[in-house]
Design a protein around this nucleic acid. Structure first.
Lengths: 352, 352
DNA sequence: CTGAAAGCGCTAACAT
DNA sequence: ATGTTAGCGCTTTCAG
């Protein structure tokens, strides 16, 4: 049992109020007394209990953070950003992971509310129609969503649809016509859906028919053979793949290699997220980089005023942060064999 | 302000004791009363405050987790392992990152003690002579170290020295003689030091002189040109690099590429940690894989009995988990030019 | 089966 | 400058 304010008071022969003041308002304590109390605090190894304080005060200086998983560096990064920013303001984080599971989202929010967190920074599966978030609104618990791209709730994210469109456009501009999207399961992520829409936008602008996406489980460490077969089948094999996130892109590339498909010679690959490790690998993964750390930091900045902290009280509810197309060696023009096969009026693109 | 047990009591016209029982011991409440109270709980959207409970009881069911950074997937993974295991037992995690900074370690422990966590799972810079840990001992706050390889404190890790020795041995067995170690700064990690010892062991067993390690800042995203120059200088250029962790290995490989050095043709690279992304990249990163998730899980298992939970009360204080050499295409035999240069009695190794 | 009351550690009036 | 006291939300005897 740690010692309490009472123990210190007794040891220093003062009242508990004086001990409290020694800690919170030293200038209101006589110098000698101050020294004596501090001495006792040392001796007894007293650490004030945040519990007592939190129970008394109207805030806990705790904020809950909910992310799908830390296996995806994207979330690890934005968590870091939020951590840095919140810590600097004296707030502590309580972390919960959901593995993209709605039931776990519910449980996480419940736990966090029990802990009386002052606010929430969360990435949820589906931000649009989400009863959990409605409950938060009703409970008046401030929250900011991260990586959830919705105009209807406080959030910080990139414009996923536009970003995806630009990325796919880059593929098309290099002469690819048969571009297929590989996505984590749509049910588990509104991001994935928006990115698919961006993909479809780009295809249509180029006068091409969007192809159905190949859906893969988010947590998968490998591509099931059945799906892989579809991806590498001869005939109408895609010349480029747009993956809804970098982790997925790497998993897919690994599978392609196993199937004897060389990236980028036989197939180009574009990811999404711009995780640092992607840039280090060979060939460097082309991607649409999102400012993950900044997303976390911004989420805190947006949340802080809602907690009554100093800050821009009239900051926007929704922040759209800039993305950036990150070129990489996983993208090449369709190989010559491929081009020979497709020397038809439909693919009149030029190459240097 | 969330509603309290009093609000519910008033709404249901019972005492707060009955509300408490409804939540914690429903069988001791009359069926009708139970229903009425539950109704009120619903209506008022009552969520019991963990604070009140924690203040009253002798445990908070909170555990603190301290890791250097989440930018290194190793720690993200073991955090996940700990989270899974602890959550299953109804414990919540409070996360703090230190960026390998001792001052931040101190602050983290302070905060966690204030929050009255029941125990700690931590990865610290230096587990041997660490006053912070001594303080924990004195305060009788149970803790388990992860990734800290020390027999003197409760810990879960792999045998870093042996693992490093085996890895370097594998390089030597392929004909490498000039193997250099690249390490994060030794001051910030007892792991790095042990791995260097393992490197030295292997070199000496092969009758070779261990070379001084090249130290690089942990957080670096690139290798400074001055260090890079030393690594790629002609003449006594190493034919193989042993990196003290995978992230570092990837950063180094990236720099080597910039310097026109091809891996593995011109230089082999071996990492440490076995992060999943390493296996996905091309060429696949050879590494010494550590069971990170299991490390986190085991840490919880080892901590639980110390908190008075069910579990093996006589589990070992220190657990050494098995590592595994993970072969990869970043390791090759020294290239032919290199071999021609070194066709001397000292390097009689055969190649297919 | 239910209620009254004490007390967990702390802060903030209010008194002295 | 310091002390006394009420009360934050809850659990837990102890009575009824």
């Amino acid at each position: 049992m740690p010692s309490t304010i009472k123990d210190v008071a007794a040891h220093a022969s003062v009242s508990i109020a004086t001990v409290s003041r020694t800690i919170n308002a030293p200038h209101r304590v006589n110098a000698e007394t101050l020294a004596r109390v501090r001495e006792s605090i040392q001796v007894l190894d007293f650490t004030p209990s945040a519990l007592g304080r939190q129970l008394r005060g109207e805030r806990t200086r705790l904020i809950g953070v909910i992310v799908p998983t830390l296996a995806n560096p994207v979330f690890a990064e934005s968590l870091q950003g939020a951590d840095e920013a919140a810590s600097a303001d004296g707030y502590r984080l309580m972390l919960m992971t959901t593995e993209y599971d709605t039931a776990r989202e519910r449980a996480a929010i419940e736990t966090l509310r029990e802990q009386r967190v002052d606010g929430l920074i969360a990435t949820v599966a589906d931000a649009g129609a989400n009863t959990l978030l409605d409950e938060l609104d009703r409970a008046e618990l401030p929250y900011v969503l991260t990586h959830n791209d919705t105009p209807h709730r406080p959030s910080v994210c990139v414009d996923n649809r536009r970003a995806a469109r630009e990325g796919v456009h880059a593929l098309l501009a290099r002469g690819h016509r048969n571009v297929t999207m590989v996505a984590g399961s749509f049910a588990a992520s509104d991001r994935a859906r928006l990115r698919y829409q961006g993909y479809a936008d780009a295809m249509q602008e180029a006068g091409l028919q969007p192809l159905p996406a190949v859906e893969i489980d988010f947590n998968a460490d490998d591509v099931p053979d059945s799906l892989l077969a579809g991806l590498v089948r001869r005939g109408d094999r895609p010349t480029a793949l747009f993956c809804s996130n970098d982790r997925l892109a790497m998993v897919v590339m690994h599978a392609l290699r196993r199937a004897g498909i060389d990236v980028p010679r036989d197939m180009s690959v574009l990811g999404f997220d711009g995780i640092p490790l992607g840039e280090l690998m060979q060939p460097a993964l082309a991607s649409i980089a999102t400012p993950n750390r900044l997303i976390g930091r911004t989420a805190w900045r947006q949340l802080a005023p809602l907690l009554g902290l100093a800050g821009d009280a009239h900051a926007p509810q929704c922040t759209t942060l800039p993305h950036r197309f990150r070129p990489g060696a996983t993208i090449a023009e369709p190989d010559s064999a491929q081009r020979l096969h497709s020397l038809s009026p439909e693919t009149p693109h030029e190459h240097p």
